[in-house]
């Protein structure tokens, strides 16, 4: 009895989540996809590390942190361009994107130092 109500709840929850999420603007959905992709890549690398080992540690570190960093920066961008976020109302889109690009540039310049 309890279990069935729990699964009902879960189903209702997933439905309402889907409904709520479908209201998100397309640009934000694209960013979400990007974040998911980055997190997935990070997970794959972590699993690979678990299986094979982290021997060239610099490669592992840069690969893992580049994925996580990309995801984090994209989340920051998403927070800033989200219309519903009242805190960033007077932040123009272009400024947010320029900051995002700058931060990514720094991140990947650093990552490049770990290659090889």
């Amino acid at each position: 009895m309890v279990k069935s109500s729990g699964s009902d709840d879960a189903r209702a929850l997933i439905r309402s989540l889907r409904v709520a999420y479908s209201a998100t603007p397309t640009t934000l959905k694209i960013i979400d996809l990007y974040v998911c992709f980055a997190v997935l890549t990070a997970l794959i690398q972590a699993v690979y590390m678990g299986m094979v080992g982290s021997f060239p540690f610099n490669s592992f570190l840069s690969g893992e942190l580049s994925c996580i960093g990309t995801a984090v920066l994209a989340v920051c961008l998403r927070i800033q361009v989200n219309k519903e976020n009242k805190e960033f109302k007077d932040l123009p889109l272009e400024r947010a994107f320029a900051d995002f690009v700058l931060c990514n540039l720094v991140l990947h310049l650093v990552i490049m130092n770990f290659l090889g």
């Binding site: 960093g69 920051c76 720094v106 650093v110 770990f114």
Partner: peptide, 22 residues
């Protein structure tokens, strides 16, 4: 907690850790 806190902290950890490792 605010989204500003997230922006202040999360990039710092990733970038800071990488830079420190340099």
């Amino acid at each position: 907690y605010s989204s500003r806190l997230y922006i202040a902290y999360a990039p710092l950890v990733v970038l800071g850790t990488l830079l420190a490792a340099l």
